[in-house]
Design a protein around this nucleic acid. Structure first.
Lengths: 246, 246
DNA sequence: TCAATTGCTGAACGGTGTGTAGTAGCTGAA
DNA sequence: TTCAGCTACTACACACCGTTCAGCAATTGA
């Protein structure tokens, strides 16, 4: 892979430095500060030189989003893997709390991944980071799959309570996700995927409001709200309520 | 108010036309199309002329956001008021479905209100449309207040189930919201406001993911997911499950 | 040693938001 | 009716943006 002809090594290193500089500018000066000219200026180059590495500004940003999204998923998965595999409540809580903590600490990163990243950016069709996004969805399906026995009794098709209203088919989901889930969780019904996507939305809502400045005006302790919401989510999945704060 | 000295009338009319043109450009060409020069061009003016009406581009956008947010709240409240006041389930569902329908139909409006509105816009401190936002929060509190009897039994302080984990004080919320709620719903505990904000987040999550293009890649029918999620929300509030689709 | 490739510069083009000087036209009182 | 004053607007300038391109200098491989 790293067929290190000196030129290629320098080239890869510069490409990395461009992304690094863009990220630094993003966290220092906000989305408006990420311009090709500013990146080049800081690196001692001209703006035109960047076009040797990325065909367009949006290409650079897409690469950046992929990096940031991947880093977020690394952090989330690491937090989950620190808990025993059978601790479904703990893993769900860890996922949610890690997601929120990261989002609040890196609002620009959150905007990059889940909002309008930077003035004028238009994402490519299929999304800027399909790999990391599928990783997120598949991970959530695994969490829901761990809770599935708590939701269904033997011989029962639908989960208890009102978790499921309408029936789902595999064709209701993107082929990439559906195939991946069927391969990794044989026997899991498509309704579980629907539930996982709803869990995704439930984890996302309060964080999105908070990062975009809506929640902080109304509530002094969004973390408390979020924790309550996630605890409610955990118990609504039939899982035992998680312990007190770590 | 409309002290119609001809000059003032013309002036107000022009200010309105500027916002109208900006809104038209937004829905036609997306966020990137809203530039002072484009607005002026369409109105047969120069960009500089707009500074006679709005001190800066962001001021114009702030006025625009306030208009759009107000229109959204008008629509939501109208949908709720079409149902009997004691139909708490129906009103909650109507709120959520109207919110999602509006957001999907006006993604630019959604971005304007809940995301990064337009390239480079920085909202004023306190948010661009504090009035409409408080209207939203207060409306959700009213919905939760209608469900409160279902959640608590006489003599009980905390609601049933795991809806409440930590106790809340009035000081946990923005003074504007807290005062408004205490005046309009005497006897309602602060925990109900916390629950209302969580309901806000839960209604918001899936819609935010969908508008920003994340959900559509994974799921073919986000409306089905959303409806299930809201039905689950309704029953988790102790309310009777809403009927079939209208 | 030398031709080919590569990486970068510097200037240019058309676009943006934002100020400012100057002008044309409307308003209201003499 | 006349005319001073104010207002809304234009025209232009400035600094910045993404993007392109001709040309130059350094590195590379033979």
């Amino acid at each position: 892979m790293t067929e290190g002809s000196r030129r290629e090594r320098l080239r890869a290193e510069t490409a990395r430095e461009i992304k690094e500089t863009a990220l630094a500018l993003l966290s220092e000066g906000g989305p408006g500060a990420v311009t090709l000219r500013a990146i080049a200026r800081r690196m001692g180059m001209t703006a035109g030189a960047i076009y040797g590495y990325y065909a367009t500004r949006d290409d650079l940003l897409t690469a950046l989003i992929d990096d940031v999204y991947t880093a977020l998923m690394d952090e989330i998965e690491q937090a989950c893997d620190a808990l025993p595999a059978d601790d479904a409540s703990g893993r769900l809580l860890a996922w949610a709390e890690t997601f929120r903590r990261w989002s609040v600490a890196n609002p620009e990163g959150f905007r990059l991944v889940y909002g309008e990243p930077v003035p004028g950016y238009r994402p490519p069709p299929g999304g800027p980071a399909p790999g990391a996004e599928r990783r997120a969805c598949a991970g959530l399906v695994t969490l829901v799959a761990a809770a599935w026995p708590y939701l269904t009794s033997p011989g029962e098709v639908s989960p208890k309570g009102s978790q499921e209203i309408s029936p789902y088919e595999w064709s209701d989901f993107g082929p990439g996700l559906a195939d991946e889930v069927r391969a990794s969780h044989p026997g899991l019904p498509p309704s579980a995927v629907a539930l996982a996507l709803r869990v995704w939305g439930r984890m996302h809502g309060l964080v999105a409001l908070e990062v975009h400045g809506h929640l902080r005006v109304q509530a002094r302790h969004p973390d408390k709200l979020y924790r309550d919401e996630i605890c409610d989510l955990v118990t609504s999945l039939g899982l035992p309520a998680p312990g007190p704060r770590p």
